[in-house]
Design a protein around this nucleic acid. Structure first.
Lengths: 260, 260
DNA sequence: ACGAACACCTTACGGCGTACGGAGTGTGGT
DNA sequence: ACCACACTCCGTACGCCGTAAGGTGTTCGT
């Protein structure tokens, strides 16, 4: 339903947390857990139940401390989520083994991101006010830029292409994740949903008012034999997008992209 | 921070609500408001304060009823949000006046969607389990398909292109919206944030470990003179994407898109 | 030994969505 | 006209949420 935004706390404390900066010896009892362990517990919970179901109390229960104890590890929930995000970004292998050419590398990047969203669907629900500049996010950005370094794009174009791919994958993964989890989230399979909504929908939908949608929807439904085929849509979109990038590389075009 | 998912209620009731199906004469007092009025109040609140700040109590206050009265109009918060979504989709003009060619039409579609997100940033935080199949969403889908009808794409490719554009715009708009609202959401301008986070960031960032990111980040920062230029990135990405679609149209290619 | 800063936790607050049931309203059937 | 019923409306309450505040116990540095 709704999203809250991370990034509202103390910037310094957030960076320290993300980069695991240790304050050295301090009075008081030794913390029983590490920040990484708290983050891992939170990630496991989010993976299992989704981000809306993630609460400080549940994380605390999972670790075995009281909810308020968590605040000795992280200043707030938003910071915990930023930490979770950077932590899972660390799963992405920063190599291009077995891949040739810039196109292969960008495909690798896109697919790794896609798979990341599929493994951690809650990522799609994270709404950051600012990118949490943690170690893994920085390393990943560098890695992605390296995929398209030295192929004829300006530095600025490189930044824009990495953004383009990232934005597209994020957008496309929403559908894939929803398709995977819709039954779990709503308690109804697509068939069950159509059983209930189908009759009233047929009453309100006027094929003559939306002829193109009717035609294309029918063709798509027949081809997919489902509400959609997100993986196929993703690969199609990625291919188009990369064709466009290839055209730009060929043309050595102005980075503004407003020439049209 | 987090997102809940809509689409968990009674499918039939949801469709009836979206399409404004009237049940006819019914016993009991006349409702003081229409469902559309409730939705409009909710939209105004979400526009002003964002989706996380939207609560049933606040909507009720704004309309001038008790929170629990709202449930005589909508079965739940999720359904209200679906309704809000379909309502604002109705703002998009379903014409292509002053536009020539499929490319111009798709650009119009993309920019209308982009502007919609800028006008209603909360849209980016709506997490639907299933697309809420309301009148405006259906009409918009038809309109978008018409942008690319009869230009040499198969029906399936048309569906895929519309998805591609929609996914990309959604992804790209996140950055634009965050950039616009970050100060409001976090209470800190970028300058203020850097003042606080900058010193510790400089301590942890190692330019030698991420040379490409360092170089490109510097070039981008200099060019943008800001954290980014979302509108420029959007236009760049859209241009690439459309180049790719153009290439596909030229080639009359297989819709699978896995040929490489 | 002592003060200060910590880890930990209990209590509490204000916010949230919405279940439940009571009171009032108006329709349709008799 | 009367009545049963289905509605509108709302007060109360519940369980959940994030986290402020303050108390207790622990450990460091002097």
């Amino acid at each position: 339903m709704t999203t809250d935004f991370t990034g509202g706390g103390d910037p310094r404390r957030s960076i320290e947390l993300l980069w695991g900066l240790e304050p050295g010896r301090r009075p008081g009892p030794k913390p029983r857990f590490t920040v990484a362990e708290i983050a891992a517990a939170a990630i496991a919970l989010a993976d299992a139940d989704g981000l809306p179901a993630l609460s400080m109390r549940k994380v605390a229960d999972r670790v075995g401390v009281s909810a308020m104890s968590l605040y000795t590890y992280v200043p707030g929930k938003g910071e915990l989520i930023d930490l979770m995000l950077d932590t899972v970004l660390g799963e992405v292998p920063l190599t291009f083994d077995g891949v040739t050419g810039w196109r292969g590398r960008v495909e690798r990047v896109a697919r790794e991101n896609w798979n990341l969203y599929l493994r951690h669907p809650w990522l799609l629900q994270v709404a950051t006010s600012r990118p949490p500049l943690g170690p893994h996010l920085i390393a990943k950005y560098d890695h992605e830029l390296r995929a398209i370094d030295g192929i004829g794009l300006t530095d600025l174009e490189m930044d824009l292409v990495v953004q383009l791919v990232g934005d597209y994958v994020h957008g496309a993964a929403r559908t894939a994740v929803s398709a995977t989890l819709v039954a779990q989230r709503t308690g109804l399979t697509d068939e069950q949903w159509w059983e209930q909504a189908g009759p009233v929908l047929e009453r309100v939908l006027d094929p003559a008012a939306t002829p193109t949608a009717t035609r294309v929807g029918a063709a798509a439904g027949e081809e997919y034999n489902a509400a959609g085929d997100p993986a196929r849509a993703f690969e199609f979109g990625l291919s188009c997008l990369l064709d466009g990038v290839a055209a730009r590389i060929s043309r050595g075009r102005d980075p503004g992209g407003r020439s049209d």
